[in-house]
Design a protein around this nucleic acid. Structure first.
Length: 562
RNA sequence: CGGGAAAUGGCUCAACUUGGUAGAGCACUUCGCUUGGGACGAAGGGGUUGCAGGUUCAAAUCCUGUUUUCCCGACCA
C-alpha cells in the first residue's frame, strides 16, 4: 500500500475518551474509532490486525480438527427460553422485536444453536466426537464497557463447541483445544497464564482461562511459583489461618461509638483486624444470610454463591437495618434471626469481636459457642502473601485480561435441550459438551498493552497490519523514489505485507507514524542510496546500514529469527 | 442502575464566575521555501457552542429538562 494513495491517518493528540493505554494507542494510530460506548469501528489498519488474529485462530482450530461454520446473530428469544437461560442473561442481552412483535435478541453466545446444529448429525455413538466453531460477532449489553477493546458490547469471538459420548472422550477433545490455545497465544505473541476459573453462567464442571498478564487487566490471578498453582481469585481456595490458642473468655457488651467500619472498630478497641469478625448480610432470591469472615478478609461472592447454590447480592442498607435493628456497621451473629454462614477460618478464632446488632455496640471476647450457625464454608478471598492452597508456600497476585476460556459443560445443555445418542448397548445417553471461547479484540488490546513504548505500538510480526514499512526521506528526490518504488514492488511480489510512505512529508512525520502504528520492520531510503545503501531497523532496535541488494537476504533472516 | 465530572470548527482546549452575538494551537486549502526525527512564511476555508424549553432588549454564558461521553462500585471473551 502506498500511503500517498490511501486512507491513512493518525492523530497527534491523545484520545480524550479512552481510559487505557491500548485504547488510546489504537485510536491515535487510526486503527479503531469509538462510535458509542463500547462499540468501535475498525479502520483499515485495525481491521487488518483483527483479521490476522482471526486467521491465526482459524488455522489452529482447523489444525486441531475443528470445523468452521456460521451462525446467525439475530435469534428468536425462544432459543434461550428452551435452555432456561433467558433469565440468566437478563439485561445483558440485547433484545428487540420483529414487526409482528415477536421477541428477538442479538446473540450473546451460541451454545443453544450449536446444540441444534449438532442434533442434525448425532444419532449414535458413531457420530462423535466432533468440534464446530465460528468466528463472529457477539452482542452483550455490558454494565460498564471500558478499557478500549477490552470490555465492549459488540465484539468478534471465536466460539467452539465439542461433542463427545462421555466424560473421557470430552477430556480428549478439551485437551486438543487446550493445545490449540497454547499455539494461538504463542503465535500472537502474548505473555499469558492459564488459570482455573469460575464456570459462571456457562455452567459445567471445569473451566480454565487464558489470561494475558497486564496491569490493565480486570481479573486478579493467584499464582505460585513453587508449584505452578494458578487460579482466578474468584475460585481460588483460601486455607484458613491458624491462630495462637487462647483461654476462652466470656463475651462482653462494649460501647463503640460511631465505629462502623472494621478499621474504626479496630482503632477504637486497639486490636488488629484478625481479632474481629465481619458480618455481612447477603440476599438470594428468597432469603437473607449473615456471612462471617475475619475482619481483615473480604467475602468472595463467587464462592459464597456456589456454597448457597444461588446468586447472591449484598443486602441494602434498609434491609440490614431492619434485620439487625441497628445501623449498618453493627451487625453480628448473636441473636440474629436469619441463617448464618461462617467462613472456615472463623472456626480457628477465639475471643473475637462482633457487632452487637445494637447501634454503637460490639461484643468482645466472643466464641463460637455464643451463637448458632448453619453452615461452614470457604467464602473468603485469598490475599497476597497467603499460603498456596496447593503447596503451602506463599502466593502472589498478578492482573490479567481474560483472552480465552475453556469449559467442560458436561451434559448441562444436552439435558436442557435434549441432545441424546444411542450407545452400543442400544441405550440413550446425553452428549458431553465442551465450549471454548476466544475474544479477538481482546487479544488485539492485550498485545498492545504488552507491547508499546513512548512512541507507540510495537506489533509482533505475526499480527502487525504490515510487516514492513518503507520510508522515503525525500519523496521529491527522483533517485530515492525510483529505488523505493522498485523495492516496494519487489517485496509485494515476494508476498510481504509492505507499505510505502511516499507522502510529501518531512522525515520526522514519517518516522513518528511508523512508530505509532507499530510497523516492526522499517526500511529507510535516503541520501545513502547513491552509495547503494539503505537503512533497516527492527522494532526499536538500533538501525543498521546495509547494501540495497542484500536487503531481501536480511529480511529473510529477520523473519526466520523473530 | 447508583455516586462524581464534562459536552464549544476534524482534534486538544479557551471564553462561562461578572450575559453583549465565539477564539487559540494542531489539522485542512493555495503559494513560496524546506526534506534523516512531528519545519517556516504569507494568504485562506470551516463552528446556528450536544438537544429541547425557559428568563432577558440580548444566552456558549443564567435556570429547567433531556441525551451522550468519561471516572468510581455489581458481568464476561
Amino acid at each position: 500500500m502506498k500511503l500517498s494513495e490511501s486512507f491513512f491517518y493518525t492523530l497527534r493528540e491523545d484520545a480524550k475518551d479512552e481510559d487505557s493505554r491500548s485504547g488510546n494507542l489504537l485510536v491515535k494510530s487510526g486503527m479503531i474509532k469509538k462510535t458509542s460506548n463500547g462499540i468501535y469501528m475498525y479502520m483499515p489498519l485495525g481491521y487488518r490486525v483483527l483479521k490476522k488474529i482471526e486467521n491465526i485462530v482459524r488455522e489452529e482450530m482447523d489444525r486441531a480438527g475443528a470445523q468452521e461454520l456460521e451462525m446467525p446473530h439475530l435469534l428468536s428469544q425462544d432459543v434461550y427460553k428452551e435452555s432456561g437461560r433467558l433469565d440468566n442473561f437478563g439485561p445483558s442481552m440485547f433484545k428487540l422485536n420483529d414487526r409482528y412483535n415477536r421477541p428477538f435478541a442479538l446473540g450473546p453466545t451460541h451454545e443453544e444453536l450449536f446444540v441444534k446444529a449438532a442434533a442434525m448429525k448425532i444419532r449414535s455413538y458413531k457420530d462423535m466426537p466432533f468440534n464446530l466453531y465460528q468466528i463472529g460477532n457477539k452482542y452483550r449489553d455490558e454494565v460498564r464497557p471500558r478499557l478500549g477493546l477490552i470490555r465492549v458490547r459488540e465484539f468478534s469471538m471465536k466460539d467452539a463447541y465439542s461433542f463427545d459420548i462421555d466424560s473421557d472422550s470430552l477430556d480428549k477433545s478439551y485437551q486438543k483445544m487446550y493445545q490449540a490455545y497454547i499455539n494461538i497465544f504463542n503465535r500472537v505473541g502474548l505473555d499469558y497464564k492459564i488459570v482455573k476459573a469460575d464456570t459462571g453462567v456457562m455452567g459445567g464442571s471445569l473451566s480454565e482461562e487464558f489470561q494475558a498478564i497486564t496491569d490493565t487487566g480486570e481479573d486478579i490471578l493467584v499464582l505460585c511459583d513453587t508449584c505452578d498453582y494458578a487460579s482466578n481469585i474468584e475460585v481460588s481456595k483460601c486455607l484458613p489461618r491458624k491462630f495462637e490458642k487462647e483461654e476462652k473468655l466470656s463475651k462482653q457488651l462494649e460501647e463503640t461509638p460511631n465505629a462502623h467500619t472494621i478499621e474504626e472498630v479496630s482503632n477504637y478497641l486497639k486490636i488488629p483486624g484478625y481479632k474481629l469478625v465481619k458480618t455481612l448480610i447477603y440476599k438470594t432470591s428468597d432469603d437473607f444470610y449473615a456471612c462471617l469472615v475475619a475482619g481483615d478478609r473480604d467475602i468472595n461472592e463467587t464462592k459464597l454463591s456456589k456454597s448457597l447454590g444461588s446468586e447472591v447480592e449484598l443486602a441494602s442498607f434498609e434491609e440490614v437495618e431492619r434485620i439487625t435493628n441497628a445501623l449498618v456497621g453493627f451487625a453480628g451473629p448473636i441473636d440474629l434471626n436469619i441463617k448464618i454462614i461462617i467462613d472456615d477460618e472463623v472456626l480457628n478464632m477465639t475471643n473475637f469481636v462482633v457487632g452487637a446488632n445494637k447501634t454503637n455496640y460490639h461484643y468482645t471476647n466472643v466464641n463460637l459457642d455464643d451463637f448458632k450457625y448453619d453452615m461452614v464454608a470457604d467464602i473468603k478471598n485469598i490475599k497476597e502473601g497467603d499460603i498456596c492452597p496447593s503447596c503451602g508456600k506463599r502466593i502472589y497476585f498478578k492482573k490479567g485480561i481474560e483472552v480465552g476460556n475453556l469449559f467442560k459443560l458436561d451434559t448441562k445443555y444436552s439435558e436442557s435441550l435434549n441432545l441424546q445418542y444411542l450407545d452400543s448397548n442400544n441405550k440413550l445417553n446425553y452428549v458431553y459438551m465442551g465450549c471454548y471461547g476466544i475474544g479477538i479484540p481482546r487479544i488485539m488490546a492485550s498485545v498492545v498493552e504488552q507491547n508499546n513504548d513512548e512512541f507507540g505500538i510495537i506489533w509482533p510480526l505475526s499480527i502487525a497490519p504490515y510487516k514492513i514499512g518503507i520510508v522515503v526521506i525525500s519523496s521529491k528526490d527522483e533517485e530515492q523514489m525510483k529505488y523505493a518504488l522498485d523495492l516496494y514492488e519487489k517485496l509485494k511480489n515476494s508476498g510481504y505485507d509492505v507499505i510505502l510512505d511516499d507522502r510529501n512529508e518531512r522525515p520526522g512525520v514519517k518516522f513518528n507514524d511508523m512508530e505509532l502504528i507499530g510497523i516492526p520492520i522499517r526500511i529507510t531510503i535516503g541520501k545513502k542510496i547513491s552509495e547503494n545503501k539503505v537503512e533497516i531497523k527492527y522494532k526499536r532496535e538500533e538501525a543498521i546500514l546495509i547494501e540495497y541488494n542484500k536487503l531481501e537476504e536480511e529480511l529473510k533472516r529477520i523473519m526466520e529469527e523473530k
